[in-house]
Amino acid sequence: MDLSIITYAVPFLLIGAKTTLLIALLGVGLGLPFGILVAIARTSKVVMIRRCADFYCAVFRGTPMLVQIFVIYYGLAQIGFIRHNAILWWLIGDSLHAAVLAVILNTGAYTAEIFRTALLSLSRGLIEAGEACGMSPWVIFQRIKFPLALRQALPSYSTEVAVIVKESSLASTITVLEITGHAKRLMSETFAIMEIFVITAVFYLVINVVCLTALNVIERRLSFEPRSAR
């Protein structure tokens, strides 16, 4: 392997890594609360809300992310109303914003699925106990349902975070230069296909390992075992 290629490619990929991390962080930071909201909507007692949330999840889980990103970036830009509305245009007019929006909407659907199964798996007894103590629905959610569901959902959510990092690569198809975008450019520029692939793969693996370790730490802090000695 040629060493000069590493010194040439790494600075570009580092710039790309910043964009990838930005998209992934926004995807987790905004996608997680959004996904939890959708999960609550999917377990709601109001039929209309439940149907809408179910529909949203089915659509975003049943279509490729590439299609979603194209519909958002190229498709929605066709609608005059969106083009003339300053806020909406800010959301999808810029390729980076459109990519972030697509990642949030995509991960929201998967996150909702994870949290819905977690919410459904809670034992009835605990919730009934909360009701018997006279807790309001909000307090029950906040003190009983959410903490338990979170602990239940975290292992699956950590895989979802790895998926977010990977899906952020699709931003390169709408001209956002993140890691994969830079890698493609470097491949066609230097013809050192294998070398560039290996370097880029190392970047992604490092990001994934860091994310998974961080989530593992959170998971361990939230689980009962270490403190049971008290």
Binding site: K166, S168, T180, A183, M187, I193, F197, T200, A201
Partner: peptide, 11 residues
């Protein structure tokens, strides 16, 4: 599994 599919396809 750790690398985006797009990158594998480019490779």
């Amino acid at each position: 599994r750790g690398v985006p599919g797009l990158l594998v396809i480019y490779l």
